[in-house]
């Protein structure tokens, strides 16, 4: 390619990712978005709550419901915790936050719902 680097990394394919693509955020003052919340889901009884990711919400109540909508689309989880990212006190590096445990609801969301003949390879 000429002026820009293009990479296929990042899933849906080739886009420019060369150094001319800006990455630094604007100063905090001009930001208008809701605060970031970290979300924790108890996948089933007997298990710990596990960090599953984060989202933006205007307040605690909206955050816990948005977490339900986003992280339990497939009925994973029986209990959800949310906490503002800014309120987390962390130790030094060496973080371990096992994310994204698997889980199951609307049947068409599950790959096995689709009857694919056995002779279709790699499906």
């Amino acid at each position: 390619m000429t002026t820009t680097d293009v990479t296929a990394e990042g899933g849906h394919g080739a886009v420019p990712t060369g150094p001319e693509v800006p990455v630094e955020p604007k100063p905090a003052l001009s930001r208008r978005d809701w605060p970031l919340y970290e979300c924790f889901v108890r996948g089933k009884r007997g298990l710990n709550h596990v960090h599953v990711g984060s989202l933006h919400a205007p307040d605690d109540e909206m955050a816990v419901h948005a977490a339900r909508d986003l992280f339990t689309r497939r009925n994973e989880g029986v209990s959800i915790w949310v906490v503002k990212a800014a309120d987390i006190t962390a130790s030094s590096p060496d973080e371990k936050d096992p994310m994204f445990a698997p889980s199951g609801d609307k049947v068409y969301r599950h790959p096995t719902f689709y009857e694919i003949p056995e002779n279709v390879p790699h499906m």
């Binding site: 394919g13 693509v21 955020p25």
Partner: peptide, 22 residues
């Protein structure tokens, strides 16, 4: 250290791209 609203702005301003397939 990125910020979602800011990344969205960069997308809308055409300074960051998305996959051409779409």
């Amino acid at each position: 250290g990125a910020d979602r609203a800011d990344l969205t702005d960069k997308l809308i301003e055409g300074r960051q791209k998305y996959s051409s397939i779409f």
